[in-house]
């Protein structure tokens, strides 16, 4: 069935105003650039099922569109809770948005927990007036234990890969036992198909116990 999945992973997209957060979401979910849309207040949602390894994974993504303005931070902070991963977005042609990343990392780790999978995303790769070099950002990402990628929400370059990488990082954390999907607020849920597998496994056991 098209709609079954093994895991549901909750992601967050955050970063300064105007870095292209909702465009990244739109490009990933709809596979096209979000043109001429009024920016929304608060948050935007999207979800898509992707294949990562042998698993069908549903990514449920919240983009905190107003997060950039200081006064919205107390509103959007509640979305960190229950997120398994976060994309921290800056604009490669705007140094200030890159400088803010330290603040977004602190918020994410403090509010979602140290285990949250963080991705540093340098967006607007299509622009020519770059202010943040690839080397500088990748070093920064390494120092802060994040995966780093550059994207263009306009052309779609790197977008798919970013979301898939973040999903893969979370699945690895599950496999290695670093995160427990059962913990409330982990941002991970078992999907219909994995539930079915679990219930199939447990059924014979139950029958056995009934016999005894």
């Amino acid at each position: 069935m098209a709609h079954t999945y093994d895991f549901l992973l909750k992601f967050l997209i955050t970063g300064d105003s105007g870095t292209g957060k909702s465009c990244l979401l739109h490009q990933f979910v709809e596979n096209k650039f979000k043109e001429g849309a009024t920016h929304t207040i608060g948050v935007e949602f999207g979800s898509r099922i992707v294949t990562i390894g042998k698993n069908q994974v549903k990514l449920q993504i919240v983009s905190c569109d107003s997060a950039g303005q200081e006064r919205f931070r107390s509103v959007t902070r509640s979305y960190y809770r229950g997120a398994a991963g976060a994309l921290l977005v800056y604009d490669i042609s705007n140094r200030n948005s890159f400088t803010s990343i330290a603040k977004w990392i602190a918020d994410a780790r403090k509010l979602a927990g140290a285990d949250i999978a963080l991705m540093l995303v340098g967006n607007k790769l299509d622009l020519e007036d770059r202010e943040v070099s690839y080397l500088e950002a990748s070093r920064f990402a390494q120092e802060n234990e994040m995966t780093f990628l550059e994207t263009s929400a306009l052309t779609g370059e790197g977008v798919e890969e970013t979301f898939l990488k973040c999903g893969r990082a979370i699945l690895t954390k599950i496999e290695t036992g670093q995160v427990d999907p059962e913990r409330p607020g982990s941002g991970i849920q078992y999907g219909d198909s994995s539930l079915r597998r679990i219930s199939q496994k447990s059924r014979p056991a139950r029958q056995k116990s009934l016999c005894c």
Partner: peptide, 10 residues
């Protein structure tokens, strides 16, 4: 696990 505020705040 739906937070109504996420939709209605705006």
């Amino acid at each position: 696990h739906v937070d109504l505020t996420a939709v209605t705040f705006s």
